[in-house]
Design a binder for these strands. Structure first.
Lengths: 234, 234
DNA sequence: ACAAAAGTGTTCTCGTTACACCCATGT
DNA sequence: ACATGGGTGTAACGAGAACACTTTTGT
């Protein structure tokens, strides 16, 4: 110990895991395995180890729960109220993850007694996890208004109506379908496929794929995906 | 210790302190007092104590160095490379502060061998502080493009040309003065004063004050302060 | 035939940009 | 008088918003 006399504190990460079931935004929660608050609903988390970064810890925890690696993961912020964990002082750095809900391994999630909840009727969460979810949703809305981030929640092939319903779910709002499709197509990020999705409508909607190159290239630009952003609560 | 077997880690905060001298953006740096890297240029920082939040630690450290309280302070992100501090593993949560450069107490800063540097010719910094400054500048640019955050760097009374030169400094760019003044005045955030600043020009420029009520009310809105945001590197 | 969702075009408005001249004052 | 920076107006353009009907197909 080279900085004597300083406090050493437990450090954890917690993951706010968002998914999209085709109609609604969902949140993956687990039933906590440790005391205190054992059995209560909680975000998936874990303590950081001596030789890993926070990012690595978040990746590890996410893989444990979902079997997924390389998913979109972004640091939200650190939560540091000294009383936030009643058992022992713990600083937690929250990360939010966007995953294609169809890819995760149900088996693993079952091991953790995990469940997908609609954002609207999620259970009461332990500690400050409630706040973490609210902050994550706010940041997601903020970021998705400007950057094409929500594609991370969709499967490789998706339709414009699906995409619209995703945006509408995230902003708890409705958009004009003509303006919406024009706007997303004008970005040049979407490649039209030959096949149609015939499941969700009689007429069928064309599938699109994301142009990954353009996606990466234009990720930093301000794209203004959302109509009237100032009228929504961001 | 209620979570036995978990690693307890030193946690620090570091402050990226921005100021504006009327012409250029500056950064307040100190000469590090501790080993290792004693005497080298560094961000002001400190370890978090057992009973305070990260925010409180950042406030405390900022007060120590500048004598200022209640300044704009925002969490940037946590830096967690296990090797980032060669002496001992330390996770640091970086905060960036925007202060009115005229308010800080020179005396205190002298105690820490502190100095204001132009962003452009700042010295090499210790550890990952270089990265912290870059990330902070990027976030500042990002946020200031949408929210009226840069007023925090100005004195209570300021002129439109001063404000413009501040924005130009932050974005290392130049803007059309006619469009700029129209844009900022159209927000309704500025209250024209009777007096003029006669220091910076012969004709003199009217002072303005920030309408604090409207400032707080409209802080969340997307204001689009910057022309051609997609042409700048944000 | 009908219901249900997909797909598409036009007009209007308003914000953004580009651009150039006159004003007030200290020297 | 002149140099310096402050302050203002306008026209052209383009992005965003509002708005409704036709198409396809499963039942």
């Amino acid at each position: 110990m080279r900085y004597p006399g300083q406090a050493h504190i437990l450090t954890a990460i917690d993951c706010i895991i968002f998914g999209f079931d085709g109609n609604n935004i969902k949140l993956l929660l687990i039933q906590r395995a440790l005391k205190p608050e054992k059995g209560k609903w909680s975000l998936m988390g874990g303590f950081i180890e001596q030789t890993e970064t926070l990012e690595q810890a978040a990746d590890r925890v996410l893989k444990q729960l979902t079997g997924l690696q390389g998913v979109y993961l972004e640091q939200l912020k650190a939560f540091s109220d000294p009383q936030r964990d009643p058992a022992e002082r713990t600083i937690s750095v929250a990360y939010f993850a966007l995953i294609d809900i169809h890819n995760y391994e149900k088996q693993l999630s079952d091991d953790y007694h995990a469940e997908w909840f609609l954002l609207k009727d999620k259970p009461t969460l332990i500690f400050d996890h409630q706040q973490m979810v609210e902050d994550a949703l706010q940041k997601l809305r903020y970021k998705a208004a400007l950057h094409p981030i929500l594609f991370e929640l969709l499967p490789p092939k998706f339709t414009i109506p699906q995409l619209q319903s995703l945006y509408e779910g995230v902003y708890d709002s409705t958009f004009d379908n003509r303006n919406f499709s024009r706007k997303v197509l004008s970005t040049g990020l979407l490649i039209k496929q030959k096949e149609k999705d015939k499941v969700n409508s009689k007429k069928g909607a064309f599938y699109y794929k994301l142009d990954k190159k353009k996606y990466k290239a234009s990720f930093g630009a301000f794209l203004n995906f959302i109509p009237n952003p100032n009228k929504l609560i961001l």
